[in-house]
């Protein structure tokens, strides 16, 4: 079973916050990490490969240093990496990103299954997975929480709904996006780390994957950011002072009025 995992390098969002003094992003010490959901997609791919044989290729679109997440993927069980990197990709929205990723995946030949994390924690859109499926022309479901059965021709999975889950069977090739409940990602082995360190990771440009210039990057993106701004603070706030008991007392006075 030949499997592609789409991976994104993201800032560790839980550490990013606004600097209250300057109202700008305080990002000192914020590291780039593998998008947490993608880690679960990778683990699922490696488990399926262990069951059925085949090859797991980790694909990322990003700046040259995004190679780091591919090395991490190799250390965690991926067989190959593909770095899709070109200045022309900058400013891509989810439409242009899914176009670019699909072109890259098509350049890899016959693929049975494409796995993505449910969403990336920096954008939280959850749009790229369905977009890639659309471009590849394969059936897909999102938010998979469990693989029940798999064969060379089909895969049966539980996909989360707002009120529970649906058990669905898809013929292969297909695309799935996964949630964290699906598995517990392994820690990279020493051997895996050594292999990852030595691996040569190919880098491909827009021309290499035959991506049409009008469909990539900022120019190829239907959505445009027109303004960025900080969220407004509430004007009417009241921070209590005094001992814990005094503060609690003031709060309960207010609560009594409202509840």
């Amino acid at each position: 079973m030949n499997i592609v995992v789409c991976i994104k390098q993201v800032p560790d969002a839980k550490d990013v916050r606004l600097d209250p003094e300057t109202n700008t992003l305080a990002r000192e010490g914020v590291e780039s990490i593998m998008n947490p959901y993608d880690r679960h997609a990778l683990e699922e791919a490696v488990q399926l490969k262990e069951e059925h044989g085949g090859c797991v290729t980790a694909v990322t679109m990003g700046p040259p240093q995004a190679e780091n997440v591919l090395r991490e993927a190799l250390a965690c069980g991926a067989d190959k990496g593909l770095l899709v990197s070109d200045r022309a990709f900058a400013g891509a929205d989810t439409w242009a990103t899914s176009y670019t990723l699909a072109k890259a995946i098509e350049s890899l030949g016959e693929i049975d299954l494409t796995l993505c994390g449910k969403q990336a924690i920096d954008g939280d859109t959850a749009q790229v997975g369905p977009g890639v499926a659309c471009r590849l022309g394969v059936p897909f479901v999102t938010c998979v929480q469990k693989t029940r059965a798999s064969s060379p021709d089909s895969i049966t999975v539980e996909r989360m709904m707002d009120d529970g889950y649906d058990l669905v069977r898809l013929p292969l090739p297909a695309l799935l996006t996964v949630v964290k409940d699906i598995n517990e990602p392994r820690v990279a082995s020493l051997k895996g780390k050594m292999k990852a360190k030595k691996a040569v990771i190919p880098m491909v440009s827009a021309a290499d994957i035959q991506a049409a210039p009008e469909n990539i990057g900022l120019g190829g993106s239907p959505t445009k950011v027109v303004r960025v701004f900080s969220p407004e603070a509430r004007g009417d706030r009241q921070i209590f002072t005094g001992t814990v008991e005094e503060q609690v007392d003031q709060l309960v006075q207010q609560l009594k009025a409202h509840l």
Binding site: D93, T94, W95, S98, G123, D124, T125, A126, Q127, V128, G129, P130, G131, A133, C134, R135, F140, V141, T142, C143, S221, P222, T223
Partner: peptide, 17 residues
């Protein structure tokens, strides 16, 4: 969140989540 990105890609439309 699952079907709308698929539709937006089918019709080449911009989508904001």
């Amino acid at each position: 969140r699952s079907v709308i990105p698929f539709v937006a890609t089918l019709i080449d439309a911009g989508l904001t989540a």
